[in-house]
Design a protein around this nucleic acid. Structure first.
Lengths: 339, 339
DNA sequence: CCGCTTATGCTCAAAATAAGTATAACTGGC
DNA sequence: GCCAGTTATACTTATTTTGAGCATAAGCGG
């Protein structure tokens, strides 16, 4: 063959490799889950063995990018994807440490996919991991997470005070306030990626180190273990993108039903919404909203698994997609815990 | 070199070429504009010579995808991009007719970029073209466009009636109603891509033919000239994606100011919003909205170019990005023309 | 000064939202 | 069987946001 070993191993600096990667999201036991697969050999740089299901795009076998993605996910997890949407294409230099060793430039097309509770098996070499294990600062369901006030807050302040230039310090402080909802700013649950990137720049998560960036604050070695479980390569960034997109999307499209079983109580639905949003919702208003939008219809069946008064089971009204294309679960996020 | 001619010319069926393409949008004279560049040689399949500025991604020269895009746009149009965001990555087989002749699989990362009126020069080999020349059915500023009622409506009906299967016919009718806002459905100005794709499938636009798909209705040869000006390859699809995204985004992020000069009257701002949205807005409510959101501040200057009472000039308040990160020009689209 | 145009301030009703109160219907413990 | 605890569901109330329009202000050309 004309192909040289050099090219096959991808050490041609002009080489590009397109990878397809998927953030598979499900909700189980009131917790949002993401599917991780064990990487063969692991990524010595991040000390992580887990990453998102992914594989190279094959222009011969794959008619579309999405088809390729479905194939890889099926192969690696045994799951036949339902809902999937393209998220973002990641192409920054050195996304993958392998590139420094002469590997090809890795360009990754990331997808968000939603998996129904009922399709939730744990396949070989794959596991459903709690979202918030990787982003502990994103879960505000029982008030401001401890990690924000205890670790992130003070360490970010140190980072903000580091520059010699007064204006730079002000800019950093401002950015911290907006992304983390400090001062008189409100916490915006959609800014997942911005928060991740801020922590990255501030050197508060493990990826900063493994990517060979200068650490802002050298005293933080174990802080990494506090700031969430790491994935290989930049997969945690992809995950942050997926999370932000999903939190935004459930507000204006009825995608949350892609995660629910066929029949559910309104409270189960609310729990799922809360799990994704990372915040509590007002129960009565939530059900009024869902009802008024015509998103669900009663089945007549009753569930007595609730622990209190039995609840009626509902199902998603597929018609709404037709009737009111732009409906979703607009949630008024309440950040303060119930007293 | 180990590279074979075969590989260099890209006729290896496993080859992939990443292209970066940009939809540069501006507003001028109350019309939305998009920058088109002349393609060397033209695209014989579509009989179009124009397309979006684009170029191959170079993993050596380009540190990020966006950087590569900025380089190409600068080279082809002389414009230094300001605001730019990634849109979507297009990778379907045969996006580019060249692929049938053994060319590499073209994967294109599309961007939406906003250009300020003041930066609006017409560069060599490039031209600002009216959006609605390519999507005549999208402009509802003076009521339902003639093309929808006269051509598209009836032709789509024919397409819907074509299948033998009753259920298929119903599905098609339903889809037409939702995407084009017929029946009791409302016109949703964001569904630009869905409308484009429906017309594509129905064989009502030139791309259907050039892509080698079966034509649903062979009597439509000149209808193509009615259904908007074509671009090379799938660039009109990228443009539809950009348009839809922009229409959605101005409602919740203050991106519209990326298109405005530093100082403007509120009516100029409204005109720009209307040009993008393709619909008229209620004037008093628009200014109340903009004022209440704190998006603008008065400059004290007065413009007497208005043709009536002089208007005060305003400027964008950059602070809002900090204070209210999620604000935009929420526009209640009024589709019916003023009587 | 008149008729035309656009700017701007203000009102008013309808709808949507946020935050409750009140009551209903189940469970388990005794 | 009754009570405390738990969840479900109906309804109320105040506030805010929207959609639509009236009225007046301030320029222009004649």
């Amino acid at each position: 063959m004309a192909k040289t070993t050099k090219e096959q191993s991808g050490s041609d600096s002009r080489a590009i490799a397109i990878e397809l990667s998927a953030a598979l999201v499900a909700v189980h036991d009131e917790a949002p889950k993401i599917l991780l697969v064990r990487d063969q050999g692991g990524d010595s740089a991040t000390h992580s063995q887990f990453g998102l299901p992914c594989g190279p795009f094959d222009p011969v076998a794959h008619r579309t990018l999405e088809e390729g993605l479905r194939t890889w996910v099926g192969e690696q997890s045994g799951i036949q994807l339902g809902y999937a949407e393209q998220l973002y294409t990641f192409g920054d230099r050195f996304r993958d440490p392998q590139e420094r060793k002469g590997g090809p430039r890795p360009v990754s097309v990331g997808y968000l996919a939603l998996v129904r509770q009922t399709d939730l098996r744990s396949p070989e070499n794959a596991d459903w991991s709690d979202w918030y294990r990787h982003f502990p600062w994103e879960d505000w369901r029982s008030g401001p997470p401890a990690i924000v006030s205890q670790v992130i807050g003070s360490e970010l302040k140190a980072w903000a005070d580091a520059p010699d230039n007064r204006a730079d310090r002000a800019r950093r402080r401002e950015r911290i306030d907006t992304t983390f909802g400090l001062g008189d700013m409100a916490w915006d649950n959609e800014r997942v990626l911005e928060r991740y990137e801020l922590l990255y720049e501030a050197g508060l998560i493990a990826e900063t180190v493994t990517d060979g960036r200068e650490r802002a604050n050298p005293g933080l070695v174990q802080a990494h273990t506090l700031t969430g479980a790491v994935l290989i390569k930049d997969h945690r960034r992809i995950m942050a993108t997926a999370m932000g997109r999903l939190r935004a999307k459930i507000k204006y499209r009825p995608v949350i039903f892609e995660l629910m079983p066929p029949n559910f109580t309104l409270y189960q639905l609310q729990r799922a919404a809360e799990a994704l949003a990372g915040a509590r919702l007002h129960k009565q208003n939530f059900r009024r909203l869902v009802a008024n939008e015509g998103l669900v219809e009663a089945t007549g069946q009753i569930s007595s698994q609730t622990g209190g008064r039995p609840a009626e089971l509902f199902r998603f009204r597929r018609d709404v997609v037709r009737e009111r294309p732009a409906s979703g679960v607009r949630l008024s996020v309440r950040v303060k815990p119930k007293k």
